[in-house]
Design a protein around this nucleic acid. Structure first.
Lengths: 383, 383
DNA sequence: TTGAAAGCGCTAACAT
DNA sequence: ATGTTAGCGCTTTCAA
């Protein structure tokens, strides 16, 4: 490639020195202008900007990164699924990253890939990102128990783990959005408050830390209320898996309330219950998790726990960027967003209330469950 | 920064010359090894790899990009929504990009942003991407008509437009996944085949080219069959908007069949019909679009047109990478994936069939609608 | 407030 | 099959 041949192969892309020449200043001054550095007279700045505009100058990020040692980009590791939760979080991350002025590089992990997260992080590190976001980590080790699948990263940049308490080990690790346990408690207590003797749990795949969190939150709540802890049914987040689980659950007349770890599974579950002749919520109450856009419009409209994806992403990124830009400093404090519950028509008191629940009417539990929460959508059970 | 200070600020990151020294070869040889260039003896290659491993060498992408003029990365412009369609396409793109060995940079456009796609493309160009993918373009010009919102990009790299015929102008533009019109035809003809006199359309927002396509496909089909073309109801892709539209549609007894431009709107629509006392499919048949994971499990299970996101992404990327790597060559030919239809329980013949439809039983139309397609899921309408 | 010089770590072209 | 020599276009000192 002869000097002056640009990307396209025809016209040479203008460089900062070309701009400098045209503006009658030094190349360094052009650099100053484009980096908003101080000590540039407004007159010079104007001339430089004008010259740049005329030439169609566009600063070369690779050169910038090479010279400065920083790429001004953040890498994110997500699952390659279209699942509502992970995707919403990813979109929140994109927005948050863009707001900070960094660029975004994305690598998906394939579920079941042994290299998994570590491999994805590695490819991001190769790209020279300044920070890394791991969204919704999964334990690929095959172990079921907590802590077995520690993910050790040899990352020399700060890492933010989103959506679950961190199983990740690296020099600098931050966490945000680990409030699923509390949310699961809210869901479970809602059903208990309605008078159900106990609550069944349709869990997410236990390789997901987020799924473990919800399960633990549910179990802890039952235990705290001295209730029997029924066996867990595990799905894979899909409505299809919820449907399968529902077929089994429908045969057990003892099941009067189910907390599903996400809305999709709740929808499949409800479908299976209806097919088996069990009415929702008259015979069985169902609570979901996520508050997907369709949750309000399925039949019956789903009571569910909304997830604050955007708030989590924004807060996490603020802290990540802080860690990137102030390597020595103490990490910014984390704050958990409030937990809500949207009560719709898929939950009701049990048919044959157990002892002590006679007092319990259709109470509205804590959270954003007032008129505004549930009333925005009709909660009649159709036909 | 004194020489030798790496990203972290403590230990110097090893460079290829360090590896060379340790392996007892020239720096260029290290470069050869890492680029899989020919003319490296296996013995030398082994030594280099060993030295690199020992030092924890990681090649510097910025330097590579600067020296070679190529970043080996592809930028994608998407909407910042969690909508099933755009997201599935994005995931397909990520997979396809990764398979080609390129890195992925993502920029979202905010709906309603005047800078819109052009602005997003610009920021990608700043980052020095080798190619650009525009997924699901939107016309931000405010015009409703076709062609009004031409998006002129001053991109010096190839651009791939995904999901709709290209409204984008740039030196090199490729298109993939523009088969929505044909899919809309399939959906519409399914309803006509069942004996419905005409088919209403619940359209997507007409600023989306994909939504316009589906509408045109529907309209063309009705016209081709000499049927009345009812007024279009426009939603915003959400179940909530489908619900609103459904309330209006439910009042018109002439409505016996509706083709919704996506599944979410179809779900909201069905909910509204049920609330209004109109049964689905007995009184009104509904066809969706997408085949989201929940479509099979809502009540009634939704008849819908699946979208081949992965195939579209893969094919589009193959052609984009070809255009990147063979600037002069003729573009690879495009091939449209087959159109399918999944028949479930939300469609049926009309109650009071019009003339000529007496012959028309519950026929199964073209596409993957055989036993395998519909039978994987129970299609009974529950309680 | 501005400029000159010296790299950043790699690939490209040309030896050998 | 391997080494040498020049840059790539910026940021970073340091000087003026």
């Amino acid at each position: 490639m002869t000097r002056g041949t640009g990307r396209g192969g025809h016209a040479a892309a203008p460089r900062s020195v070309d701009v400098a020449r045209l503006a009658g200043v030094s190349q360094k001054t052009v650099s100053r202008v484009f980096n908003d550095e101080p000590y540039v007279s407004t007159e010079v700045r104007r001339r430089v900007l004008e010259a740049a505009e005329e030439l169609g100058y566009r600063r070369n990020d690779a050169a910038r990164a090479l010279a400065s040692g920083r790429s001004r980009s953040i890498g994110v590791v997500t699952l390659g699924t279209a699942l509502y939760g992970p995707v919403s979080l990813l979109m929140g991350v994109e927005r948050a990253v863009r707001d900070t002025g960094y660029a975004l590089r994305v690598v998906n992990t394939v579920e079941g890939d042994p290299a998994g997260i570590a491999g994805a992080v590695d490819s991001l590190l190769d790209q020279g990102v300044d920070g890394i976001v791991v969204s919704e980590p999964i334990d690929e080790s095959g172990g079921e128990g907590r802590g077995e699948g520690e993910i050790a990263l040899r990352a020399d940049v700060p890492v933010l783990v989103l959506g679950a308490p961190s199983p990740v080990t690296a020099p600098t690790v931050l966490t945000a959005g680990g409030g699923a346990g509390l949310m699961a408690r809210t869901a479970t207590e809602h059903l208990l408050d309605l008078g159900h003797m106990t609550v069944h749990h349709l869990a997410g795949p236990q390789r997901w830390y987020a799924a473990r969190d919800r399960l633990e939150g549910w179990r802890a709540t039952l235990t705290a209320h001295d209730r029997e802890v029924p066996p867990v049914v595990e799905g894979d987040w899909s409505a299809a898996s919820g449907h399968r689980a529902g077929r089994a659950l429908a045969e057990d007349p003892g099941v009067t309330a189910v907390f599903a770890a996400n809305d999709d599974m709740a929808i499949g579950l409800i479908r299976a219950l209806l097919e088996a002749g069990r009415r929702v919520p008259e015979d069985v109450s169902v609570v979901g998790f996520d508050d997907t856009p369709v949750a309000a419009f399925v039949t019956p409209p789903l009571t569910t726990v909304p997830q604050p994806f955007d708030a989590v992403a924004r807060e996490g990124l603020k802290r990540l960027v802080h860690a990137i830009e102030h390597p020595g400093a103490a990490p910014l404090p984390s704050s958990d967003p409030p937990v809500g519950l949207v009560v719709r028509a898929s939950t009701a008191p049990p048919r044959a209330p157990g002892p002590g629940s006679a007092l319990t009417g259709r109470r509205r539990p804590r959270g954003r469950s007032g008129p505004a929460g549930g009333a925005s959508v009709p909660s009649t059970t159709a036909s």
